[in-house]
């Protein structure tokens, strides 16, 4: 493709991340000899791209494998199969899943993560200076004084006072701690940040503050976000494109507005219908039919389409054949045999 691509790996020029047929199976062990009795397919045959500068939302219920994807991209876990391509700041493309430890260390400057739990994600025994400055120290960026100045600047950037440098995390509220985590993620000027349920643990008013902050930072630094959440309202608000996950598989990918206005997968439709809206009249008008049953055990994924036992539209084909993720409209992919024939309802904007 481009001349900057040094290896034979290639991806679309606009893309920063390309996840290709990624699989992650966790062995389930049993007994004192740790015999493997089966695998949890946390991520199974996932393929999607993230464009430079966009926010890609990943939604799904618990156990859908959405958090595993972030950890795979950041190589906190090793892939079982497939590849994850990342475009570096210099334009070169690398496969994150095969990097050596040393190259990985280098890559960590360019991709970072924001965690869900503002309490367990900050070491309580370190001051803000040590916490936010740790990535700088590890990568040997600048002298002590320079690191101090940089940390102060980062704190200011996320709306915290630079005077807080010597404080420990326990002196801060959940929302503030989350901002400390954001400052730490920004320390090395990354181009890509995975936010794993970054505001789920926060109160409504504080979550809104942090979402606005994240959007401002994205604008200022041209960041690309992978925004993982179970909150459909939040994901719609922040994402340009969305992937919907169910039992380790991607069911639908597409631009937010189009997908929410007219979903192509029955699961997306069901998810959207399930969200209770802060709109009593609308709720009364909209006759909600809750989805039957519950998400299957990740160790015993149903045959065929994993969603078929709960799907209102399932037929014999769905029970027998695993659908592929396929393009049905420009920019929209869906993993459903009947995507073309189904007429699904999304969210009707008032």
């Amino acid at each position: 493709m481009t001349s900057t691509t040094k290896t034979k790996l290639s991806m679309h020029e606009d893309h920063i991340i390309s996840v290709r047929a990624a699989r992650k199976y966790f062995p389930v062990q049993e007994g004192w000899m740790r015999r493997v009795k089966g695998y949890v397919k946390a991520v199974d045959d996932i393929t999607f791209d993230i464009r430079k500068g966009e926010t890609f939302g990943l939604v799904g219920e618990s156990g859908s494998g959405k958090s595993s994807i972030a950890r795979l991209i950041l190589r906190a876990y090793d892939l079982t199969g497939g590849e994850i391509l990342f475009r570096r700041a210099d334009g070169s493309v690398i496969d994150v899943s095969t990097l050596s430890d040393r190259d990985l260390r280098d890559i960590r400057r360019e991709m970072q993560m924001i965690f869900q739990d503002p309490y367990s994600s900050l070491n309580p025994r370190m001051t803000l200076l040590d916490l936010v400055g740790e990535p700088l120290v590890i990568h040997g960026v600048g002298s002590q004084g320079e690191i101090r100045d940089r940390v102060a600047e980062l704190l200011r950037l996320v709306g915290l006072r630079p005077e807080y440098l010597t404080r420990y995390p326990h002196a801060f509220s959940g929302g503030q701690r989350q901002r400390i985590g954001i400052a730490r993620a920004l320390a090395l000027n990354p181009s890509f940040i995975a936010a794993d349920e970054a505001v789920s643990a926060l109160d409504v008013s504080v979550a809104a503050q942090n979402i606005n902050l994240m959007q401002d930072l994205q604008e200022k630094f041209g960041l690309t976000y992978l925004f993982i959440t179970h909150d459909l309202g939040m994901v719609e608000h922040i994402s340009d494109r969305i992937g919907v996950m169910y039992l380790g598989r991607l069911m639908e990918v597409g631009p937010t507005d189009e997908m929410f206005a007219k979903p192509l997968h029955p699961y997306t439709e069901a998810l959207l219908a399930a969200v209770p809206q802060p709109d009593p009249r609308g709720n009364r008008a909209r006759k909600r039919v809750p989805l039957k049953g519950e998400i299957a055990d990740a160790m015993n994924i149903p045959t065929g389409c994993p969603f078929h036992p709960r799907c209102a539209y399932a037929d014999a084909k769905c029970r027998g054949e695993v659908p592929e993720l396929r393009v049905v409209q420009a920019g929209r992919q869906v993993r459903c045999h009947h995507a073309e024939t189904l007429d699904l309802t999304g969210v009707v904007a008032e």
Binding site: A208, I211, M234, H237, V347
Partner: peptide, 15 residues
């Protein structure tokens, strides 16, 4: 300050 489905995309959240 709550993002609502179907009407909040891109709009800044009030805090």
């Amino acid at each position: 300050s709550i993002p609502r489905l179907g009407q909040s995309h891109g709009r800044r959240l009030r805090t």
